[in-house]
Design a protein around this nucleic acid. Sequence first.
DNA 1: CTCGTAATGCAAAAGATTCTCATCTCTCTT
DNA 2: AAGAGAGATGAGAATCTTTTGCATTACGAG
Lengths: 140, 140
Amino acid sequence: MDNQEIRKAGLKVTLPRVKILELLEASVPRHVSAEDVYKMLLEKGEEIGLATVYRVLTQFEAAGLVTRHNFEGGHAVFELDRGEHHDHIVCVLCGKVEEFMDATIEERQKEIAAEHGFEMEDHSLIIYGRCNNSSCPGRE
Amino acid sequence: MDNQEIRKAGLKVTLPRVKILELLEASVPRHVSAEDVYKMLLEKGEEIGLATVYRVLTQFEAAGLVTRHNFEGGHAVFELDRGEHHDHIVCVLCGKVEEFMDATIEERQKEIAAEHGFEMEDHSLIIYGRCNNSSCPGRE
DNA sequence: CTCGTAATGCAAAAGATTCTCATCTCTCTT
DNA sequence: AAGAGAGATGAGAATCTTTTGCATTACGAG
């Protein structure tokens, strides 16, 4: 059960934390903002404050349970960390997000970091483009 | 002179815009936030409002004169666009930023976007790591 | 040089995230 | 199972970044 994940992170197993983790696992939209989580909880009838959502999400991030992304738009989005690393492609027109993972790029990044005297710890790669989704606005 | 750059962007050549562009060209810290620009202008005795700094920076971005980056930390940073695209390596300990450009990665990105049915428009690649700078804190 | 439009400054607004603090609830201990 | 203490929560205030409204001012075409 999820509870172990929370406990392992050194956090008390409380209702807000369990509910938020469950919600992330249901992973409906893969990338959700704190506000999204808050609203989804409200819709489910859970009375969890926005401040708590932010706190819990930040704690989950510190514990390595979720990853925070700074896509453009002024607010951060979170996604459950399922172990496998991946990068993102975001449609600048409709906001659709797809994930990918490319060994070639991953490898080159480590080399580049080394060439600059850095030890790579993490990275963020986001490709912005126009998707060919039929429901995507701005298509001629 | 810079004025042409501004004019070409379809903007009037006003004192705030000229001063901000000059400041970006002096490129002291390569990556500055709107707040940074505002303070630097104040120090130089220029009475330019923060709102104007934001407006001008946004216009410059739209005109392709500067690029806006969403590094982590809740605020955006801008840098003068000198034509050549490049990505960044940021030290998680001291915040130092270095730039790099790798043809292999650039190429793969286009391919990946295409594989996902996207037409790449732009991308953001940031490598986070620990630098080996002697003045970098957190070195054992 | 004069006028109309676009730009600026200020202050208020808006959006996102954090903090304060009184209250509540896990968990560990008897 | 009951109690104590540390840690967590909720509501709202506070903070920070960025945007907007509006009256005033400054470009630049004619």
